[in-house]
Design a protein around this nucleic acid. Structure first.
Length: 271
DNA sequence: ATGGGCACCTGGCTGC
DNA sequence: TGCAGCCAGGTGCCCA
């Protein structure tokens, strides 16, 4: 479901309700997520205080007194805060009850999401250790992007989805960023010139920042921490617009498949 | 090291 | 109305 902006919007939505609270209970209704939820987790979490909620790439890190919950929303997951006990619906898998009487509820139809726990530095965790720099921090710029695309024969669109080189860019924003940078998705990554790498890095940052400002794009079933759809979705220029006129030049937007994922682009604007 | 393909899972939509 | 087929926001892992 969520790309980085949705995850960041979720983080901002839930943190005020979690920060400083004590875990009263964790109810696991279905442990079959991408990795099975540790059966010891309810016992481990009970009584711990939540210090803060961080985000690393598309992972949410719920920092507790003695450890960290590493959560991922996968393709279809969402988190919302409940003011009181509300009847569970299909695919409500986890409830984290707080001393405030509120609960953080995790829903995930496809169960590609995860909920792991570590008492070590979460950034050293196997899943996070190898991740590329945050796209909205200073290390990620045109020079960085240019460096990691050297000698890479893969299509630039495919490279954008490689979390070890670029984080936070999902399938929608990969197409969108390439459109704004006016770069054709099938170009070999290594063919990018320095100024193109610079444009693309800037486009990635702009598109992610704009979507965060808009409260996350409304993607099909996306809901924010209050259970409401993202209100002002960012305007998409190419994603799922195949056959429709390019917003810039009116040429029909094209759809292709790359690495088993859909790509959308304007054959006229993007070279 | 790099790149390609598959896997995990459910639901919604399309077309017969 | 029913059903098969295809597609969907992610990413770890196996293999060449």
């Amino acid at each position: 479901m969520p790309e980085l902006p949705e995850v960041e919007t979720t983080r901002r939505g839930i943190e005020p309700h979690l920060k400083g609270r004590t875990v009263h209970a964790l109810h696991v209704h279905d442990a079959r997520l991408r990795w099975p939820v540790d059966p010891k987790l309810p016992r481990l979490l009970r009584g711990q205080r939540i210090d803060r909620v961080e985000r690393r790439a598309k992972y949410l890190l719920i920092r507790l007194t003695r450890g960290t919950l590493i959560m991922h929303l996968g393709m279809s997951g969402s988190l919302r805060v409940l003011a009181q006990d509300i009847a569970r619906k299909t695919h409500d898998h986890l409830d984290l009850w707080l001393d405030s009487g509120q609960a953080l509820r995790f829903n995930d139809p496809r169960r590609f999401g995860s909920c792991l726990y570590t008492t070590d530095d979460p950034h050293a965790h196997k899943l996070l250790a190898g991740l590329a720099p945050e796209p909205l921090q200073d290390e990620f710029d045109g020079e960085y992007l240019h460096r990691v695309t050297r000698r890479r024969r893969v299509a630039i669109k495919t490279l954008l989805l490689n979390g070890r080189l670029i984080t936070g860019v999902g399938n929608i924003y990969a197409s969108e960023a390439l459109f704004h940078a006016r770069i054709a998705p099938r170009r070999a990554a290594r063919s990018l010139k320095p100024d193109e790498s610079k444009r693309l890095a800037a486009a990635i940052r702009r598109v992610l920042a704009a979507s965060i400002r808009a409260g996350g794009t409304t993607l099909r079933d996306y809901v924010n921490a209050a259970g409401l759809p993202g209100e002002f979705g960012v305007k998409l220029y190419v994603y799922e617009r195949d056959g429709k006129p390019c917003r810039r030049c009116r040429t029909p937007i094209r759809h292709i498949t790359q690495g088993q994922r859909s790509t959308y682009f304007c054959p006229e604007c993007q070279r």
